[in-house]
Amino acid sequence: MRANFIFSEVWIGLRRNLTMTIAVIVTVAVGMALLGVGLMINSQVSKLTGFWSDKVELSVYLCTKGSPFEPCKNRGAVTPEEKGTLEQTIKALPDVERVQFENQAQAFKNFQSTESNTLLLSVTKPEDMPESFRVKLKDPEKAAAVASSLKGQPGVSNVVNERDLLQSVFGFMDTLRNVALGIAILMVIAATLLIGNTVRLSAYNRRRETGIMRLVGASNIYIQLPFVLEGLIAGLIGGVLSGVILIIVKVFIFESIQTYMAAPLGWDTVAGVITGTMAVGVLICVLASFVTLRRYLRV
């Protein structure tokens, strides 16, 4: 095997088909970058899901004086007896891990720290805040059943599953991921076809050389290797570009939304995603070259 001979052939091939090679590189870069973004969103969502499912609780809000909720109408604030029985009822449920009571003062403090609307802050008094039981479940999946069993209890104004609030955020990220992956799949198909075309052109351009190589008894590997290497190099350059794009996406997009994300995406995940997408890109290129060669370069 003469390495410099093979590489000079590869170089000639890439130069002769420069525009096609650039098309392959760009397609692979964009396709793999989108695949990578999809994977990054995916791991961000699963990280967030893991983070929140530890924290998510049911909030069982109790009636205050003049509460507008339906179960509280025609009655006053919750009485201490009702609170006592309610706490016993909740504790008796098999799916409940622990219960915490939040009084009006604590609720007001939480409200002050999270609410940014100054007008609303200035008119809200601690007496307006509802008292609540914070219920931590053994299995977050049971939330709906527990919630419905607690809704009818006397003194309960409303039961909120915090998970439902997060679900809309997760739903948005899921959509984002699916769009990225969908486009990535289309790009991968486009890249495969482009590579096939490039290799076919390359084989046609060099049919004289390959014809003579066949005739003088060059082995199949020797004839095919330059073409496969062309695909591999184009795939590799595209993969490196997609890696650069993914790093930019991580720095400028994922870092900037990190303030809202309790569980940030680490560089180790990004490195894994880049390695994976590069491997996929190179693999696609090599396979596409090989399959096309079988068809257009009969040895």
């Binding site: 003469r2 001979f5 003579i212 190589m213 003088v216 020797y222």
Partner: peptide
């Protein structure tokens, strides 16, 4: 060329 492609030494 005929010798290069069958891997003969330079």
């Amino acid at each position: 060329f005929a010798l290069e492609v069958i891997g003969k030494p330079r």
